[in-house]
Structure formats: C-alpha cells, structure tokens
C-alpha cells in the first residue's frame, strides 16, 4: 500500500505488525541533523542503532516513539509500545505497583505483582521509588516496560551509566525478559559490544546530516 509520505504525521500500526520508519529529514532550527533514515523492524526482531554520541540516535528514537512529530517522513508503529530510558524515569510520588498500574490501566493487580516479582522486587509493591536502591529502580523501569507485553520496546542507552557488574545484571535480565515477551526491540547505544550481544541486526548512524551507513 503505497501512501504518499506525509509531513510530520506518523501513521499508526500496520496489519502485519512491522514497525516501519522512513525519515526523510529532520532539522533543528534550520540545521539538518538527520538525512534519509529508513528501516523496518519485524515483529520479535531485535535491532540496535549505534553511532557516536551526539549523532542523532536519540532524535531517531524520539521520532520512532512519536514523542517528536516535527520531521519529514512517516513512521508506522504498533499500538503497544514501551520505553526504557537511561534513567529509571519513574513517578516518585506513586508506589512501585502504581508505577506499573498507572502506565498500564488494563493490567490486573496480580499481574503487576507478578511483574514486580519477575525483576526481584517482590514485597516492595507499597514502597515509593525513592525508597528503592538505584538498581531496584532500574529493574522497576524494566518491569514497567514488559508489564504491558509491548509489540515494540525502545531502549535508550539503558546501561550506559552503570558499573560493569550492574550492567551485566541488567543486560542478563533484559535478555531474559525479551526472550519471554518477544517484542520487536529498538535498542540505542554507542557500545558496539552491547549492540552485538542483544541485537539480531545492527544499524550504524553516521555523517552530517546523519544517515544509515
């Protein structure tokens, strides 16, 4: 179904569940940062987007998620998405279980408790995020991402600021959760080792304005 590219208006999910990204250009204040960036992610496929810092990876990610709609091109994305940021990005004024329930209104309380249990946070459902360690907060953020059984999971340098031991723990947990839920995954990083470990396919962003090499 050939549809003329529309300016800045992403269309919603395709029937076959493929996430399709076609960015023709993106500028900030007249300065082009992205050129043609075109890729698809099949259901269950794990794709890593790598490139040096400041190249525009996060911009691509913000366009894919629909946070940024001011670009030329179009994006087809599934309805159920989840995101894991570099920081936990929790609601500090709501309990851990409410952090899951508020972002997934359809989630049953028991399923939310199971999701907490899955990341090693059983018994912490009444705690506020500030009462958890940073590692626990990150795991809560993973639990939130997987609780909704997303079709598309987006991860923005989720392990970048961790010490090696914690990074290893988090990567292992993420691998397990991805294997269980099997979402299509777009994984942004500047560490090639991480990318090759977690992804089926690696896309490299480079140049000015940035394109896929």
């Amino acid at each position: 179904m050939a549809v003329a590219a529309t300016v800045g208006t992403p269309r919603e999910a395709l029937e076959n569940g493929v996430t399709s990204v076609d960015i023709r250009s993106k500028s900030f204040g007249g300065v082009p940062v992205l050129g043609r960036v075109r890729f698809d992610i099949a259901p269950g496929e794990r794709v890593a987007l790598v490139g040096p810092s400041g190249i525009g990876k996060s911009t691509v990610l913000r366009i894919v998620t629909g946070i940024d709609t001011r670009f030329e091109g179009h994006v087809d994305r599934p309805e159920a998405m989840a995101i894991v940021f570099q920081e936990p990005t929790l609601l500090p004024w709501r309990s851990t279980i409410d952090n899951l329930l508020l972002t997934h209104p359809g989630l049953a309380r028991d399923d939310a408790l199971a999701a907490l249990d899955r990341v090693g946070l059983s018994g912490k459902d009444g705690f506020f995020p500030g009462q958890l360690s940073l590692g626990q907060q990150r795991r809560l953020s993973l639990a939130r991402a997987f609780a909704g059984k997303p079709d598309l999971l987006i991860m923005d340098e989720p392990f970048v600021s961790l010490d090696p031991e914690m990074a290893e723990q988090m990567i292992a947990l993420t691998e397990t959760l991805i294997a269980e839920t099997k979402p299509a995954t777009l994984f942004v990083t500047h560490a090639h080792a991480e990318a090759e470990r977690l992804a089926d396919r690696v896309l490299v962003l480079g140049g000015h304005p940035a394109t896929l090499g």
Binding site: A82, I83, F85, T89, T103
Partner: peptide
C-alpha cells in the same frame, strides 16, 4: 522525560 514516558505509555 516524564512527559515522554507518559506519552509512550499512552497515559
């Protein structure tokens, strides 16, 4: 960041 989070999770 919280805005972006709320938007992606379609709150």
């Amino acid at each position: 960041d919280l805005d972006a989070m709320a938007q992606v999770y379609r709150m």
